[in-house]
Design a protein around this nucleic acid. Structure first.
Lengths: 341, 341
DNA sequence: CTGAAAGCGCTTACAG
DNA sequence: CTGAAAGCGCTTACAG
């Protein structure tokens, strides 16, 4: 009963309307000067039969799928969830479906998705990695085409790339800290080979340098995770590092960091100032409300899809460029002048 | 260069291996007694040509797509993001692709996705709605089949349904509050026609009733959003409602609520106790850390997919059942005995 | 065990 | 303007 009886096809509609399938197909695809009266008959047949085209047949025939692929490290992470949400919304607006895949830090899956794209499974791919590439990914991307690298770099891929302005983010954080008198800053970043971490760190240093005088940055780099936030916090605490402020390079890192600070009775911003990065989570409800650099997450997703569709893939030499989206600082209550300890 | 040259097909492989496409196809699909030596030749040809089957052709031919659809209200919402993540992981394990769609409260989109499923676009659908149905959805679901209703009910749909044990959640919250001496509780729920809100409210009342003595529940029902959390908070504050505890029926509602309490200088749990529901966000870092009922979000996603695959869709009479997944209470620091005011 | 052939349901030159 | 027919790349009875 509930199961699939033979679905109504183009042929059925054509028969019902007394025309050929060619005509119906053309009507459906808009490549037709409507002869008005037959058009009505066809429309009626479509209504009556509740006809809907079989997408598999259409795709096979047309050689494209009207769906785009999106590869992200982890969907449950609020940053990526927001990005996925933005891409889905933008794709839907354009009548594109979304095929979603999470890599969960397994390089093999990245390769597999790229391959399936190559076989025209999807019309294009938005690709987000979160670990260094040994060159395999870049090679695959270059021979595949139609992929936009988003958020984090794949070094030798010659395709459009879209990132947040990470250097600016680091710089804004650095300025804010420096303005409050901080000169010794602990930086908790992501994987050190990754562009996001490197650029944020560079921005931080540039700010500190520009403000003049001696300064010091203590670097802890690992993953953009709660676990690493905790781990880094324990390490610098146990090492007795004398930073007066901490720049946590993601919401997750900030969460892990704050858990530890709280557990050890270290007060923010009284004992140490903290500034975060991402600002996707409800940082304003933390104790204290966390000052952070906000990434333009939705804009990243929307722009990435636009790039995928706008790019002229036939001109390889114009493909390799990098576009940066601005970030901003959201000042709350976790940064204060260093305490006199 | 980078663009798609004609992809290598089954025919190419067959030619290269000196066999028919039938044979290659069979090998690929496992329905073959391997003749060992030809098998090797074919495997080699596949390697050499880097052959990968065209999924569109396969789908058209087989009449199924090896992809399942997932319809959620809003991907950026951490609750749904986590659910999507769990479904994707489970689907990937089984070699299924995921087609993701957000409805964003637009009923028309729900209808459209259901229709496209009916046309065998996907092999099955996990469906999550977040607003009452006038019957149209249920009708469509019943004639479509192969859909699992998850998280929130579609009343007359005769398909498997999977929910959190919302009544239990309300009950656990109620017990915890009652144990601390609360008898006048403000309940901030979602849309009042929805099953989740009704059941949580029932559980809350059952707990209060079981503990004996007079009690009172003040109900505010709207959406599971930050905005509604704020709105409800302002309303009961302005109305001077004398509740000693608040049961906020989602993380989002709790966030809005806490924003308002904080803005008005009302201290939790000193002035009023708060207990939340969902526990997906970093509630442990809130000020104070929020006690909440935790939903088994990932389990919900995994089980939903399992149900979709396990169900024998050919037997309509066995289809209509409801399965509940248990919730638990996570006690933190936002509930205390009522203050003597 | 293996192959020729039909069929899945569209699209699209190519002819009227 | 409209149709017959080939083709997209698979799968799968049906025959050897």
């Amino acid at each position: 009963m509930t199961s699939t009886k033979r679905a109504t096809s183009l042929k059925d509609v054509a028969d019902a309307a007394g025309v050929s399938v060619t005509t119906v197909s053309r009507l459906l695809n808009g490549s037709l000067q409507l002869p008005s009266e037959t058009k009505l008959r066809i429309d009626k047949a479509i209504q009556d039969l509740k006809y809907e085209p079989n997408p598999h047949a259409r795709r096979l025939s047309r050689g494209r799928s009207e769906t785009i692929g999106l590869v992200v490290p982890d969907i449950a992470n609020p940053f990526f969830a927001t990005l996925v949400s933005a891409v889905e919304a933008a794709a839907d607006t354009r009548g594109l479906a979304l095929s979603l895949h999470a890599t969960l830090n397994r390089p093999g899956r990245e390769i597999a998705y790229l391959r399936s794209l190559a076989r025209n499974h999807v019309d294009g791919l938005l690709f987000i990695t979160n670990h260094p590439d040994d060159g395999e990914l870049a090679a695959l991307i270059n021979q595949t085409g139609k992929v936009i690298v988003v958020d984090e770099d794949v070094p030798n891929a010659r395709v459009p790339k879209l990132f947040s302005d990470n250097e600016l983010g680091g710089y804004l954080a650095g300025c804010h800290l420096a303005d409050h008198g901080h000169r010794r800053v602990i930086y908790i970043g992501g994987p050190q080979e990754m562009i996001s971490t490197r650029r944020r760190s560079m921005g931080l240093e540039r700010a500190l340098r520009e403000r003049g005088g001696p300064f010091q940055v203590f670097r802890y780099q690992g993953n953009y995770t709660v676990e690493f936030g905790r781990e880094a916090a324990c390490r610098f605490l146990d090492e007795g590092i004398q930073g007066t402020a901490i720049f946590a390079s993601s919401d997750e890192i900030a969460i892990g960091l704050i858990e530890v600070l709280r557990a050890r009775g270290i007060s923010v911003p009284h004992d140490v100032s903290v500034i975060g990065f991402d600002d996707v989570g409800p940082l304003h409800l933390f104790a204290p409300p966390l000052t952070a650099i906000r990434q333009p997450v939705r804009a990243l997703g929307e722009r990435a899809l636009a790039l995928l569709l706008e790019t002229n893939w036939a001109e390889p030499e114009s493909l390799a460029f990098e576009e940066l989206l601005p970030v901003e600082i959201v000042v709350r209550n976790s940064v204060a002048p260093p305490s006199k300890s």
